[in-house]
């Protein structure tokens, strides 16, 4: 009986350790994503991994993205007040439309059925050296 109790205690301790580790990893990730990251300035649209277009976050636009064989897939990307969101889409799940607005560097909205990914980037962040202040 005593031995069984000890095993249960060991289980619970390991469970708590595992959960704490995961929460810690997530907390570091969240801190990195939401506190350290600045606002991006450009929205990059990729379809099926290939670049479709870049749009500035500072200009309000409405862009209709037609994909698929005969352009039967439709996603409407809207940039307004420095944020980007998917206004409408004819994908089956509609998850991209429900997604909150994105504006931080690295944030993205994904439409899995249409393989459309929109990502906020900071223009030229990969090919120009960091600015020394």
């Amino acid at each position: 009986m005593k031995e069984k109790e000890n095993t249960v205690k060991r289980y619970v301790r390991n469970d708590i350790l595992l959960i704490l580790c995961l929460v810690l990893i997530a907390a570091i990730g969240l801190f990195y994503l939401y506190v350290l990251r600045d606002h991006g300035d450009t929205v990059r649209v990729t379809v099926d991994g290939k670049e479709y277009g870049n749009y500035s976050l500072s200009q309000d636009i409405t862009e209709d993205i037609y994909t698929g064989k005969d352009g039967e897939y439709h996603n409407r990307l809207v940039i307004k007040d420095g944020t980007a969101f998917m206004e409408s889409a004819n994908c089956p799940d509609g998850i991209c439309v429900e997604h909150s607005r994105v504006f931080r560097d690295g944030e993205s909205i994904v439409c899995l059925p249409h393989r459309v990914v929109i990502t906020v980037v900071t223009s030229g962040d990969s090919n120009t050296p960091d600015v020394v202040i």
């Binding site: 959960i19 995961l22 929460v23 997530a26 969240l30 994503l33 099926d48 690295g106 994904v110």
Partner: peptide, 27 residues
Amino acid sequence: TAMLLLETAELGYYLVVLTITGTVSGM
């Protein structure tokens, strides 16, 4: 799978949120 299919690394952003929801729902 989504990263492989869509050939984008940007999806890693979702992993952070999904780690939390995965932990809570797993519990």
